[in-house]
């Protein structure tokens, strides 16, 4: 890794929204638009989003206190849960009621907060599963190896390349069950990227990943944007949110309570109240220091 890949201040996309930054504000080029999405569990309303737009080619952070409904919103948008009401569309195509695998095929890929590594498959097989190009996954074609062998080695190359970038290449032949929690997070993200998605939704991708690797993960996420992908991620670590997010959406008790650029949102009193807490100002002082920390480590 050369030192210039991790600029302390990545280039932020600006001018994403139209008009005043407020909950539900319209975006210049939204990739995903949700309307009146509501999900209730018994008497509890886990998600109640009136209007939400996710900007294209940008990194959006979704933050909010525990139980705010972030994961539930992820589940709804990707077809893993069924909304009580609401419509949402991806690239203009309605996704309400579309099953999870079809959503994924359209290019909207998500990862899970509770990591789902396929334990009794090797790391390499986990990765290969991500590929969408393999004809051999069809029943009729699977019994004719000559139809899929060549593709298989291409996929393997692609997988090795990704694994190397996620520091997992030495583990490629191990069962995923033998990976540590953080390594599984990395594997899940790498596997998701194997699908070559257009829009990636990451549920706490950095939870449990060590600082040095977090640094390279952040670079990855920034690179996804450079490669033209759109990223929406949930994260509790405000330093990282501040560092890489172009846009921040804050949820609390199922509702979107604030939206805006990271700096604006963190000054918003409603956000401070509901999520950040009043000590955030003190923490903010360390933000920049924390981000450059791995760089210092490397310099010694």
């Amino acid at each position: 890794m050369s030192s210039n890949v991790a600029p302390a201040t990545p280039v932020k996309s600006t001018g994403l929204h139209v008009g005043e930054a407020s909950p539900g504000v319209a975006k210049r080029d939204p990739i995903l638009i949700a309307n009146q999405v509501r999900r209730q569990f018994g008497g509890l309303t886990a998600v109640d989003v009136e209007h939400l737009e996710i900007p294209r080619h940008a990194i959006t952070a979704l933050i909010g206190p525990n139980g705010a409904g972030k994961t539930t919103l992820f589940n709804l948008l990707t077809g893993f849960d069924t909304a009580n009401t609401g419509t949402w569309s991806f690239n203009g195509k309605s996704l309400a009621g579309v099953s999870a695998f079809k959503v994924a095929r359209m290019g909207l890929i998500r990862t899970f907060q509770l990591t789902k590594a396929l334990s009794l498959l090797t790391v390499m097989d986990n990765m290969k599963l991500g590929s969408t190009q393999q004809l051999g996954e069809k029943l009729w074609a699977s019994v004719f190896p000559m139809l899929w062998r060549k593709k298989e080695s291409e996929i393997e190359e692609q997988a090795l390349d990704l694994l190397a970038r996620f520091n997992l290449d030495s583990k490629k032949d191990d069962y995923a069950a033998s990976l540590s929690g953080g390594q599984r997070k990395l594997l899940e993200m790498a596997r998701a990227l194997m699908t070559k998605p257009e829009f990636v939704m990451l549920d706490e991708p950095m939870a449990g990943v060590n600082p040095a690797l977090t640094q390279s993960l952040l670079e990855h996420i920034l690179n996804l944007k450079k490669a033209g992908m759109t990223v929406l991620f949930v994260e509790h670590d405000m330093h990282m949110v501040r560092h890489i997010a172009d846009w921040v959406i804050v949820m609390a008790e199922g509702k979107v309570i604030a939206e805006g650029s990271p700096d604006e949102v963190m000054k918003n009193p409603a956000v401070v109240d509901a999520y950040l807490g009043s000590h955030q100002d003190i923490d903010l002082g360390t933000v920049t220091g924390r981000i450059t920390l791995p760089k210092i480590g490397k310099g010694k």
């Binding site: 990707t78 893993f80 999870a100 695998f101 079809k102 994924a104 095929r105 890929i109 998500r110 990862t111 899970f112 789902k116 590594a117 396929l118 334990s119 009794l120 498959l121 097989d125 986990n126 290969k128 599963l129 991500g130 969408t132 996954e137 899940e188 596997r191 998701a192 194997m194 699908t195």
Partner: peptide
Amino acid sequence: RVLKGIREDEDAVRSLGK
């Protein structure tokens, strides 16, 4: 391979578009 993936975790395989 997809089948074994399903044995391990259906949702993970679903999230990959299968």
